[in-house]
Design a protein around this nucleic acid. Structure first.
Length: 421
RNA sequence: GGAGAGGUGUCUGAGUGGUUUAAAGAGCACGCUUGGAAAGCGUGUGUGCGCGAGAGUGUACCGGGGGUUCGAAUCCCCCCCUCUCCGCCA
């Protein structure tokens, strides 16, 4: 969330940023609450100071054998007033926090201003489009004929959007996960984390899923838990309410399944593995100082790209403009894979710098060079999400006979298997 | 799920209603001392919020939330977590 003091001192900039984001936020209402809050705090604290003084003198009187009854009544009255102030304050604090939790992050100064996804600039391409001397098949047809997954049976036991992988398809999932984790831990310098796959509402609020996006998540109300929509939630919040004494940056990677209700996208991309309710993903998360976060964000994006380069897949990197930027992000690159049968770019990674937005919500701090406690910057990105990666591998590497060549980097992870036939 | 024991600052650990403004020790920082170091001595050492240009000052915080009281780390209620034993279980 934003710092209320920042909002107070930069009200116009905040309002402008919200317009660029297409977000409707009543900044003035929040500032009115804030000034009421400070007025009440000031008044209440004067009373409290006085009460503390008199209470102390009552203690002394008792020790000296004097009768404090007359003063007690007076202080009791004071206490009632203080209680009333505290009650008001509790309400205002809650309203203020709630209001702040619904304000999206300020876009970075380097984030391009734009209205929607059509204004997202392409930053770079890698590789090139593959050409075929036959009509490339869709991944759902390839997957069915090669028996890599069985989406009907997945739908039978859980519902559509819950893929069920079989045989070599299941092994490919496992192999890809291990390939990516090995790459990030052995070459890119990340430490592997195996976190809980469910989180509570505090964690979900810390990274920004709650309170605004509750309907995007599955929930287990009986236990107050949510199956995670991304490893970002447990891995970022593992340092919640802490002052980190480790050297920054901290670079972590984690494999987790991800659960998303995809509310609001019903009927879109419903076929095959394009958009599913449960998928596997390897995530990278960094905790950095404000000074190095921009640089670490660029490096993390390159770390995600390395996965695709090793697999020999054509991709492009785009930068999200202010109108398309995610709620908590200040700056974000999307990496998109080319899928020839789909004839589309498929998003497989979203690499975001959140600045101190999540750190403030989750209360994650470190001591800077002056020993002053400071909010860290958090960065994360997919490295990468599996279903669309699998689609791209299948569609790009297919042969006329319906077989699929596996990228060489995967051979060791597939027990030497080089081709799905 | 049942029974019990715990949760105090960076750490160890005292504190069962009133100069607690949380003892003491360790650690850490700075200073003195020293050829240099250790030891010794001295000083300092939390977080949030309010006010203040600043020095500073007020307030809140002893797992979390409520309550009793003029006054709560301390008493009462609810919850969370850790440990031990029992039960159940991959």
């Amino acid at each position: 969330m934003l710092d209320i003091r920042f909002v107070r001192e930069n009200a116009d900039a905040v309002k402008a940023a919200m317009i660029n984001r297409n977000a409707e936020v009543d900044v003035d209402a929040l500032l009115a609450l804030d000034s009421r809050r400070r007025a009440i705090v000031a008044e209440a604290e004067v009373l409290k100071a006085e009460r503390n003084k008199i209470s102390k003198s009552i203690g002394l009187m008792i020790k000296e054998g004097k009768d404090p009854e007359s003063i007690k009544a007076e202080v009791r009255e004071m206490g009632d007033k203080i209680s009333a102030f505290d009650e008001d304050l509790r309400k205002i604090d809650a309203q203020l926090r709630e209001g702040l939790l619904y304000i999206p992050n300020m876009p970075s100064a380097t984030t391009p201003v734009g209205k929607d996804e059509n204004d997202n600039p392409v930053i770079r391409f890698w590789g090139e489009k593959k050409t075929f001397d036959f009509e490339p098949a869709m991944h759902w047809d390839l997957g069915a004929s090669l028996k890599l997954f069985d989406l009907e049976r997945g739908a039978k036991i859980a519902g559509s959007g819950f893929p069920l992988f079989t045989g070599r398809g299941a092994k490919l999932e496992r192999g890809l996960i291990q390939f990516m984790l090995d790459l990030h831990t052995e070459e890119n310098g990340y430490t592997e984390i195996a976190p809980p796959f469910m989180c509570n509402d505090v964690a979900m609020t810390g990274t920004g899923q709650l309170p605004k996006f509750a309907e995007d998540m599955y929930a287990v109300p009986l236990d107050g838990l949510y199956p995670i929509p991304t490893a970002e939630v447990p891995v970022t919040n593992m340092y919640g309410n802490e002052i980190l004494d480790q050297e920054l940056p901290i670079c972590l990677t984690a494999y987790t399944p991800c659960f998303r209700r995809e509310a609001g996208s019903a009927g879109k991309d419903t076929r095959g593995l394009l958009r599913v309710h449960q998928f596997d993903k390897v995530e990278m998360v960094k905790f950095t100082t404000p000074e190095t976060s921009a640089e670490e964000h660029e490096k993390l994006t390159l770390d995600a790209e390395k996965v695709l380069q090793k697999l020999g897949l054509h991709y492009r990197v785009i930068e999200l403009c202010t109108g398309d930027l995610g709620f908590s992000a200040a700056k974000c690159y999307d990496i998109e894979l080319w899928a020839p049968a789909q004839d589309k770019w498929l998003e497989v990674s979203s690499c975001s710098n959140f600045h101190d937005y999540q750190a403030r919500r989750a209360n994650i701090r470190y001591r800077n060079e002056d020993k002053k406690t400071t909010f860290v910057h958090t960065i994360n990105g997919s490295g990468v999400a599996l279903p669309r990666l699998v689609i791209a591998i299948m569609e790009n590497n297919q042969n006329a006979d319906g077989s699929i060549d596996l990228p060489e980097a995967l051979w060791p992870y597939m027990g030497g298997l080089q081709k799905l036939a």
